Simulated scan of single mutants.
Amino acid sequence: MRPKLCLPGNTGINLSAKLVAELAQHPNIMGIKDSGGNIVQIASNAAVTARFGIAGLKAALDMLGYYGGDPRPPLLPIGEVERAELKEILTRTQSSLTMVKTR
Results as ranks from 00 to 15, higher is better:
16 S>R: 05
31 G>L: 14
55 A>D: 02
68 G>Y: 01
3 P>A: 11
73 P>A: 06
1 M>T: 08
3 P>E: 11
23 L>C: 08
45 N>M: 12
45 N>W: 08
70 D>R: 14
86 L>K: 09
72 R>H: 08
35 S>H: 04
27 P>H: 04
100 V>Y: 11
93 T>W: 05
74 P>H: 03
50 A>T: 05
17 A>V: 14
75 L>M: 13
18 K>W: 10
94 Q>T: 07
85 E>C: 02
70 D>K: 13
9 G>A: 09
58 K>G: 00
28 N>D: 07
28 N>R: 10
56 G>Q: 01
52 F>T: 01
15 L>V: 07
71 P>E: 04
55 A>K: 01
57 L>D: 06
72 R>W: 03
44 S>G: 10
2 R>Q: 14
50 A>W: 03
16 S>N: 05
92 R>T: 05
99 M>E: 13
20 V>E: 09
46 A>M: 15
95 S>M: 07
73 P>V: 10
16 S>E: 06
2 R>F: 04
97 L>M: 04
103 R>E: 11
53 G>C: 05
35 S>P: 07
69 G>C: 05
62 D>N: 10
16 S>L: 06
76 L>D: 12
8 P>T: 14
15 L>S: 06
101 K>L: 07
88 E>V: 02
9 G>L: 11
61 L>D: 05
46 A>R: 13
87 K>P: 01
100 V>C: 03
71 P>N: 08
13 I>T: 09
85 E>V: 05
29 I>T: 01
94 Q>M: 08
87 K>E: 15
73 P>Y: 05
67 Y>G: 03
69 G>V: 08
26 H>Y: 02
55 A>M: 07
14 N>V: 12
94 Q>H: 05
10 N>K: 09
66 Y>D: 14
101 K>D: 00
42 I>F: 04
25 Q>L: 09
96 S>L: 13
81 V>L: 11
44 S>K: 15
72 R>P: 00
35 S>V: 06
52 F>S: 00
88 E>P: 00
61 L>P: 00
87 K>M: 11
68 G>M: 09
83 R>E: 03
52 F>G: 00
100 V>K: 06
12 G>D: 08
67 Y>L: 04
64 L>E: 07
20 V>Y: 03
18 K>V: 08
93 T>I: 04
13 I>P: 02
103 R>H: 13
6 C>T: 11
64 L>F: 04
88 E>W: 04
83 R>C: 03
31 G>R: 15
74 P>W: 00
78 I>L: 04
61 L>C: 02
23 L>G: 03
33 K>Y: 09
86 L>V: 02
44 S>M: 15
58 K>E: 02
47 A>P: 03
72 R>I: 07
19 L>A: 14
92 R>L: 08
31 G>E: 12
66 Y>Q: 14
43 A>I: 03
23 L>A: 02
25 Q>D: 05
51 R>P: 01
34 D>H: 12
21 A>P: 04
51 R>Q: 08
12 G>W: 06
18 K>I: 11
